[in-house]
Design a protein around this nucleic acid. Structure first.
Length: 980
DNA sequence: GTGGTCTCCTA
DNA sequence: GTAGGAGACCACA
């Protein structure tokens, strides 16, 4: 190194954390290896390399190195055992990336420097000192204030992300002192993130002023008695030694023994092939293209590197003191470092951690003042993780009022913030002398708390972890807070373990399963039934135990479950099909759909009238008054009293009276059964829809359903309170109910639905040429099937022939059985069996698909959709034949139904940005499995219809390119009935 | 009051 | 034959 040379020193460890927190999580597609930080790191490094090739800037480096921390135990720990003791383990999905990033640096052909017992900062200081002594210049690529002490003649700090270069003047501007006094300033101020104590009560402003007045730290400490402010004087005297210790801690060691001499840091032209081989292995397509273009290498000619895998005995995660260090990563014999297969290891270590979990309710905090809240949340800024949970006074997120919020920042470290608690005595309190505050203690005013929470819940560097985050997201949305970024333990569990045998993904259940701990139930806290009390009037200490525990459990669950996503290859299902849907559904629920109360009440009236007439007729025919709604009483009347020939079908030991039985009786000429069928239909429509829906309307006349994202095995959504996915459509009277779902003045409802999506997916997955051809040509698929099977020409085909084929097509999707088909078509089982055989003869690919799917499910215990979603069927190996058969049918159905569900989820995720980009204001309101309902301004209808159809039709791309077209029918009208 | 059974609404 | 939710009834506590 000589005069005119320029050394670039990159603070690699700082880079890693910055890249990690600034960017959304990203995983390598092929195996789910987390690579978000690697990607950010490579992009930043490449930018730096590119810039440095540009000699016009005049700071082109001749020497270059990337410096890393080796482990967090350094000589400073001997000075002060608490140094950096408050550091927590790095985020779990970052851990496996440390080794990959070192690999990246080598792929860039840059020296990768680290040393046992020293921090990156010490190495940087040492190289800087030597370079300056040799007459060169130095650019330190970092924004860490600890490095500011090195700034001086020939040395600047470069913050690449902000594109800011800091020389002595900029340091002075930022901290009020020139770089040479930075050490003294840091000694006074201390550093919470490194646990450097400093002097209490002295912040950067005061420190700068004191140093200005007294010159340096020693002088200041010696003359501390002269200081006028009593508190400041006492502290400086009392903590003088602590300040001196702090100074030693923050002073960088310029004489670190170097393994790689300065002159070896000479910058070479990057080896394009080596770099591209690495980038291709990481599957960074954009960066690969950019690098290939700049270095003029053809990326397709370069063979993708293989990233070797090795399992270290101890991963960084197992040793909290290892911090960001690469200590566990060994080198291969050929000198090439090998990577640890950390995801699987991490899963194991987290399982152990979870099994050992213990819960201490008394350790949970109740936060009642602003300062404590800020302090607690500051811990999340350190860890980058914040589990949270909201407590409200109603079950639905749309109606609930915020009663409190709980948080956890580390296992066992949790707190509850009461916000809307009231005196348990309720109104009696009005008569009492004591105010509510005197009785239940202080609470932070809601608006104040929200103002403190907002920047944290919206902080892109803090991952918020929740259980069923749609609920909490919606509650916070109603208070003007958009929670991001977030993870959802319920959805992680769902992506991992959607299963027909496991009952669910609720927190209590997950806690028992993974943590071996039964959390306090809501019932325990608030009682149930008539003894139920609102949570707002429960004793705050007990609510703290309950609520903080929920946040604690959520955080611990996240630690166990999240690593499994990458390890089991389910990260993309979670990241693409689950997580992004949360805010979309939250907004749909918040909007609700407008309902015309008058229409419903008119229908109720009409149904009531008919019902009354029917009841009289029924009593007349039965010869006595009885409750036609009671299957038990009805069975006794029909088969007992009237002695009708009852196919005496029972399951719970009773007469079966379902429609099928009643219709058979009616066909034999008995008048009563058909009256019952009619009465039931009306009662159903009235009781379930026209009478009940108005109870769900809000003041604006809108109904807000609640979607469950994790209650089906296949990936479908479900809707409840009320269920808007089962609004009648088949009968005319039923359809009338749909006319009550309307758009407000000046708008229309748009309904867009996939035509035959499941059959199309079946045609693609099972690869059936005739079916695919029929879909390509846009033929009537059921008629085509009938024609293939029964040899009847499509022209002039009797409707019954087509109906049978249609039933078979659906039967196939449902995992057909002769029994089921016979039931559906009311034909003998032998005949149904014949149909199925013939179907398999005509479409042998279907049988192959079914056999292959069953075999796969038996081998793996699950089946997969085209998008990688898994549905588990452990009972498919049951010794019980009917249980086994049931699981086989479900396993055959799940990839088809599930793929369709994935497709519409993708469409929903893309819909809002697509509409926004087109400048359209359509609002998505409902999803009914293969249909989306929107509210659209009249004048935008024409532009919206084709866009919506396009987004839906192209939803599988680019991940899956179906070999059949997806057809979407979209229509606008005044109400749902007319639009459908 | 809670939970199970039956029935029926949807895709 | 697949996947759901919900209302009514009824037996149990």
């Amino acid at each position: 190194m000589k005069k005119g040379d320029h050394l670039f020193l990159v603070d690699g460890s700082a880079y890693i954390f910055r890249a990690y927190h600034a960017l959304p999580p990203l995983t390598r597609k092929s195996d789910g290896l987390p690579v978000g930080a690697v990607s950010g790191f490579c992009n930043m490094l490449w930018k730096l390399v590119e810039e440095s090739r540009d000699t016009t800037v005049g700071v082109a480096p001749t020497h270059f190195a990337v410096i890393f921390d080796h482990s967090s135990t350094t000589f400073r720990n001997e000075l002060y055992d608490q140094y950096k003791a408050n550091r927590t383990a790095p985020p779990e999905d970052l851990v496996p990336q440390f080794a990959v990033i070192r690999e990246a640096v080598r792929a860039f052909d840059l020296p990768c420097i680290e040393k046992q017992g020293y921090e990156a900062d010490d190495l940087i200081a040492t190289y800087t000192k030597q370079a300056i002594a040799a007459g060169g210049d130095v650019t330190i690529v970092s924004s860490d204030k600890d490095l500011m002490q090195l700034v001086g003649p020939g040395v600047i700090l470069y913050d690449q992300m902000k594109d800011k270069r800091l020389g002595p003047e900029e340091v002075k501007e930022k901290f009020g002192v020139y770089p040479e006094k930075m050490i003294d300033l840091q000694a006074l101020v201390g550093d919470t993130s490194d646990n450097v104590p400093g002097v209490p009560g002295i912040g950067p402003k005061t420190a700068a002023q004191l140093l200005d007045d007294y010159g340096d730290l020693e002088t200041l400490l010696e003359r501390a008695e002269e200081i006028k402010q009593a508190k400041r004087r006492e502290n400086l005297v009392a903590f003088a030694e602590q300040a001196r210790l702090s100074k030693r801690l923050v002073t960088l060691d310029c004489d670190t023994p170097l393994d790689t001499p300065l002159d070896d840091l000479f910058l070479n032209e990057p080896d394009g092939e080596k770099l591209i081989a690495f980038l291709k292995a990481m599957e960074f397509t954009t960066l690969t293209r950019r690098v290939a273009a700049t270095l003029e290498v053809s990326a397709s000619d370069v063979e993708t590197a293989t990233i070797a895998v090795d399992t270290p005995a101890r991963g960084p995660d197992l040793d909290p003191m290892a911090g960001s260090g690469p200590a566990a990563i060994g080198g291969g014999e050929d000198g090439a470092p090998r990577l640890a297969l950390v995801p699987a290891m991490l899963v194991e270590s987290r399982k152990g951690e979870a099994a050992a979990a213990s819960f201490d309710h008394s350790a949970y905090l109740t936060i009642r003042d602003e300062a404590s809240l800020r302090d607690f949340l500051a811990e999340a800024t350190e860890t980058g993780i914040l589990a949270f949970d909201t407590e409200t006074d109603a079950l639905s997120a749309m109606n609930g009022k915020l009663v409190g919020v709980s948080f956890a920042v580390a296992p066992g470290r949790a707190a509850y913030v009461p916000l809307g608690h009231v005196s348990p005595n309720g109104e009696a309190d009005l008569l009492s002398e004591r105010s509510a505050e005197e009785e239940i203690g202080p609470q932070i005013p809601l608006e104040t708390a929200l103002a403190i929470l907002k920047p944290v819940l919206e902080d892109p560097a803090i991952l918020k972890v929740g259980q069923n985050t749609k609920y909490d997201t919606l509650v916070m949305m109603r208070h003007g807070i958009v929670v991001a970024p977030f993870d959802d333990t319920m959805l992680i569990s769902y992506a991992l373990d959607a299963s027909a045998s496991l009952s669910g993904h609720g927190m209590d259940e997950l806690s028992e399963r993974f943590l071996g701990h039964k959390p306090i139930s809501f019932k325990d806290l608030c009682g149930s039934g008539r003894n139920a009390r609102p949570i707002a009037s429960c004793e705050i200490e007990r609510v703290t135990h309950y609520a903080a525990e929920d946040a604690d459990v959520t955080l611990r669950l996240w630690r166990v479950l999240k690593p499994r996503l990458a390890a089991e290859g389910l990260a993309s299902v979670y990241e693409r099909l689950e997580k992004p849907l949360v805010p979309v559904l939250a907004r749909m629920e918040e909007r609700g759909i407008m309902v015309d109360r008058q229409i419903l009440s008119r229908l109720s009236g009409r149904f009531a009238q008919k019902q009354g007439g029917l009841e009289a007729e029924i009593a007349e025919l039965a010869g006595e008054e009885f409750n036609p709604g009671s299957p038990k009483q009805l069975g006794e009347i029909l088969f007992g009293k009237l002695g009708l020939p009852g196919g005496k079908k029972t399951k719970g030991g009773q007469w079966s009276t379902d429609v099928k039985v009643l219709e058979e009786l009616a066909a034999e000429g008995h008048p009563l059964p058909s009256k019952i069928v009619e009465w039931r239909q009306l009662t159903k429509l009235k009781g379930t829809y026209t009478d009940t829906l108005p109870n769900h309307m809000d003041a604006a006349g809108r109904i807000h359903t609640s979607y469950s994202m994790a209650s089906t095995t296949t990936g479908r959504l479900s809707s409840s309170e009320p269920n808007l996915q089962n609004i009648p459509v088949r009968t005319e009277e039923g359809r009338a109910i749909r006319t009550a779902f309307v758009a407000p003045e000046g708008k229309k409802l748009v309904s867009a639905d996939y035509s035959q999506i499941e059959l199309r997916i079946l045609a693609h997955i099972a690869d059936i040429p005739q079916l695919k051809q029929a879909f390509v040509e846009g033929l009537d698929i059921h008629a085509m099937t009938a024609s293939e099977m029964f040899g009847v020409p499509v022209e002039g085909m009797p409707s019954d022939v087509r109906r049978r084929a249609k039933a078979i097509n659906f039967g196939i999707i449902y995992g057909i059985s002769a029994f089921g088909l016979a039931n559906q078509l009311a034909i003998p089982r032998e005949e149904a069996g014949l149909y199925i055989r013939r179907y398999f003869e005509r479409f042998p690919g279907i049988r192959d698909y079914m056999d292959a799917t069953k075999a796969f499910a038996k081998q793996h215990g699950y089946v997969e959709t085209l998008f990688g979603r898994r549905a588990h069927y452990p009972d498919i190996k049951s010794p019980n034949a009917s249980m086994r058969a049931f699981n086989e049918r479900a396993a055959i159905n799940a990839p088809i139904q599930g793929t369709a569900a994935d497709v519409i989820r993708r469409a929903m995720v893309r819909m809002e940005p697509a509409l926004a980009e087109a400048g359209l204001s359509a609002k998505m309101l409902l999803q009914v499995h293969d249909e989306l309902i929107f509210e659209v301004p009249d004048e935008e209808v024409d532009a919206t219809l084709p866009l919506v159809a396009k987004v839906m039709a192209e939803a599988p791309l680019p991940r899956v390119d179906l070999s059949v077209p997806l057809v979407v029918d979209a229509k606008a009208a005044e109400n749902w009935e007319a639009a459908h």
